[in-house]
């Protein structure tokens, strides 16, 4: 039955605050175990019963159906996460361009490594996106 507890914990991993999560894990685990017991009583082998119950159970989105107010929040969290990842990618690309230009035309720039300024200043973008993402994820 540890398989069940693992499945349930993994299911809820990123989504709930600790108090809710603990209660949810408990009720979901107990209910799954009861179903497995029923299947075993009617003749199904244990492993098969566990797998069948887990497969029919649903996923974290089904659990979230019970929390209508959280659905909106999940969308915001997703959006912010994408904004952060995009900012990281953008940072790398622009940094790459700056480094390339700096070194390709290094004589023109009198050997000054100005790309470092870009690298430091541009950090503002991914850092602020990360901050926004983490503050919503709470």
């Amino acid at each position: 039955m540890n398989k069940i507890k693992t499945f349930v914990s993994k299911l809820l991993k990123d989504y709930f605050n600790d108090q809710d999560k603990k209660e949810l894990i408990e009720i979901l685990t107990t209910s799954l175990e009861e179903k497995v017991d029923d299947l075993v009583q009617s003749g199904t082998p244990l492993e098969e019963a566990i797998d069948k119950s887990i497969n029919e159970f649903g996923d974290v989105h089904d659990v979230l159906e019970a929390y209508p107010e959280l659905n909106k929040k999940q969308e915001v969290i997703k959006k912010r996460k994408h904004q952060f990842l995009f900012s990281l990618l953008g940072y790398l690309i622009v940094s790459g361009i700056a480094i390339y230009i700096n070194f390709t035309f290094i004589q023109f720039f009198a050997d000054i490594l100005w790309f470092i300024l870009i690298l430091i200043a541009l950090l503002f973008w991914p850092i602020s996106m990360l901050f926004r993402y983490l503050s919503v994820k709470k």
């Binding site: 209910s31 159970f57 649903g58 974290v60 089904d62 659990v63 019970a66």
Partner: peptide, 15 residues
């Protein structure tokens, strides 16, 4: 109804 949904709702109702 998915079992996951049902049990989550039961937990909320009980709470």
């Amino acid at each position: 109804i998915k079992e996951a949904t049902l049990y989550a709702v039961l937990q909320r109702l009980e709470k």
